[in-house]
Amino acid sequence: MLDYVISKYNFWIYIILMMIGLYAMIGKKNLVKKLIGMNIFQSAIILFYVSIGVKAGATVPILSGHGHGHEAIEVANYINPLPHVLMLTAIVVSIATTGIALASLILIYRKYNTLEEDEILKIRKETGA
């Protein structure tokens, strides 16, 4: 059992991170904490992708003999670059999301003077908005 856990430790770590993030997004009352949870959540997924491209003992996929062209390429010697490339896009997306979220947090703070969700709900109920 322990072997099973250790042999796939990268997945366990990503799942633990993801759950932390999910908890923060749902359970925390403070909006900034929610946002941080969201970032943890996204990072967990990025780690997950990065880890599935990795091969033990392999190197970066830059072909040294490129140009001469006759040596056979051992696939096992190079890690799979595609998941990593995908994650570049995902990182961009997550940064953009964070940016917009922060901007809306600023708007919220300007309006309600607080970032605690329950307080905001109370203010909204009182003003009837």
Partner: peptide
């Protein structure tokens, strides 16, 4: 009320998109 609605939407929408991304993975 729009910023608050947006923030909720961002959080939940991101969960949705991330789930989709995990599915792809």
């Amino acid at each position: 009320g729009a910023p608050m609605a947006t923030f909720n939407y961002i959080i939940i929408g991101t969960i949705g998109a991330c789930f989709y991304l995990l599915g792809i993975g």
